[in-house]
Amino acid sequence: MPSLRLQPVDSKNLADRVADQLRETIQSGAYAPGERLVERRLAAELGVSHIPVREALTRLIEEGLVERLPRRGCRVAAINAKELRDLSRLRVLLEQYVAERAIENWNDQAERSLREIVAQMEAAADRGDTRRLSNLDVRFHEELWALTDDEILIDLVAQLRGRIGGFLRAATTALEPAALRAHASSHGELIDALSARRVGPAKRAMARHIEVAAQRVGDALPPEAG
């Protein structure tokens, strides 16, 4: 039940904290696409008034994570095939630039850290621990983004990935064991391309990485009405 998914927050920067917790909960997949978000219920779960909840929901609407329905309140945003294609195309462009910038700042310590994450991802995949695998997947990309040393770029790619984060988690959970392991190992192939410091191959590897993930999400979406 939703009451088990949120924790009370303190009064400092209340709307920010509420938005952060709702965002994390949505992106984790704990709230399903299309699930209604009732202000009064959320306020009770969080231990706050409805005002910071309303402000937080407005911010998440601006980010595309939440939709406001006429006379029906808010719900977790759903996604259709066209939106997925558009988001994925933008992600390819931005993440290829991430790859280019990461190569500029590539170092042995970064490579060791990323390879350790991949080893943990593969171990999680072998155990069938999709929650752990998804969390490590997010951490992998956050560390890669940090190598760019570009806060604006980091914010943009994080926001785009966040728009489909819940769908990515759900699609990963549905993978068969062999596909789960292949998904984890694909991050090692991405490191190989980056560590070679060849921009062209690294950008192509990044595009493949994103396109495969998008296809996985697309396969899990309900068919569109004809």
Rank of each mutant, 00 (worst) to 15 (best):
E189G: 11
W106R: 09
D192N: 08
A123H: 14
R41A: 06
D150R: 06
L90S: 02
D219Y: 13
E143I: 00
I51Q: 14
L69A: 03
L22I: 05
E95Q: 14
R132L: 14
E55A: 03
L221T: 13
L221R: 10
A81F: 10
A124Q: 09
V76S: 05
E151C: 04
A196L: 12
E143M: 10
P33W: 02
R115Y: 04
V217C: 03
A225M: 13
M1A: 08
A179P: 02
V92H: 00
L136T: 08
E211K: 09
A202K: 09
A123L: 07
E143L: 05
D86Y: 13
R115W: 07
L65Y: 02
R208M: 04
S134T: 11
D86R: 15
A170P: 01
L133E: 12
R139G: 03
A123G: 10
A193G: 10
L168W: 03
F167K: 01
D126F: 00
L156E: 02
E95A: 09
L4I: 11
E224F: 14
L180E: 09
L153Q: 06
R169A: 08
D155I: 01
N107Y: 11
A146M: 03
L221C: 11
A56Y: 00
R139A: 11
I117T: 15
G64P: 00
R85L: 13
E67V: 14
R75Y: 00
T148Q: 06
E211S: 11
P177S: 09
E62G: 07
R163H: 01
R71G: 09
L22Q: 00
I164K: 11
S11L: 07
P201H: 06
R131E: 11
H209V: 00
E62K: 15
D149M: 01
L160A: 04
A102K: 08
Q159W: 08
E100Q: 13
R23A: 07
L65T: 01
G73F: 02
L84N: 06
S186C: 04
L69I: 06
V53K: 01
P70M: 04
E176A: 15
R85S: 15
P223K: 13
Y31S: 03
G34D: 12
I26A: 02
E176D: 13
Q96Y: 10
E143H: 09
S88P: 04
T58R: 14
G166W: 08
L160C: 01
E67F: 12
G47S: 12
D129G: 09
S11K: 11
I152L: 10
R216K: 01
L194S: 10
R23E: 07
R17Y: 02
A30Y: 05
V138H: 09
A207K: 13
G226A: 15
G165I: 01
R131K: 05
S185C: 04
D150E: 09
A193N: 12
A56N: 06
V48G: 01
L93Y: 10
V138W: 15
G73Q: 04
R115Q: 12
V48S: 12
R132Y: 01
G226D: 11
L114Y: 14
A182G: 10
E151V: 14
G128M: 03
N13Q: 12
I164Y: 05
R132N: 08
T173S: 12
S134R: 02
P223E: 13
V199N: 05
T173D: 12
R5G: 02
R101H: 08
G226N: 14
S185M: 00
